[in-house]
């Protein structure tokens, strides 16, 4: 019985997320590529992202966010907010693995207008399901 509980939890969470995604334009699901967010996020991790929070407030330091790549249009980056400027117009984004990350240290601070999605939780792989 105890061995089946995680599976049930995953299925339950999956159904809940599925309903949420289907019901809402504020949610989406994405897959992580690259390893600059190791160890928090690994390549292949699947996440639920939401764009409601940043329509109401600015991103905060520590949050994992999606941002348009300033150097390659059409590509979306996932990084952690290291700091938000005092004026509240740009954010310094960093990867959790500094030696394996191209981030604001290279391309500078990113305008908050380019940061719309917040990574809320991981739903895959099952053994690492949880909030971010």
């Amino acid at each position: 019985m105890s061995r089946r509980r995680p599976l049930l939890a995953v299925l339950g969470a999956g159904a809940g997320i599925a309903a949420g995604v289907a019901a809402s334009r504020w949610l989406d699901v994405v897959e992580v590529h690259g390893s600059s967010m190791t160890p928090s996020l690994l390549p292949g991790d699947r996440l639920v992202v939401e764009c409601r929070s940043f329509s109401l407030r600015a991103p905060r330091a520590g949050e994992v966010v999606l941002a348009a790549d300033p150097r390659e249009s059409g590509r979306e980056l996932i990084k952690r907010v290291f700091a938000v400027s005092e004026a509240g117009d740009v954010a310094d984004l960093r990867g959790d693995a500094p030696d394996e990350s191209t981030d604001s240290r290279e391309f500078g601070a990113v305008p908050l207008s380019e940061i719309r999605w917040r990574a809320a939780l991981r739903y895959w792989p099952p053994q690492r399901v949880g909030r971010l």
Partner: peptide
């Protein structure tokens, strides 16, 4: 529904 719709890059060049 759970199939990711987009790739996000934890990028390093």
């Amino acid at each position: 529904i759970l199939r990711p719709t987009r790739r996000v890059h934890a990028h390093c060049d």
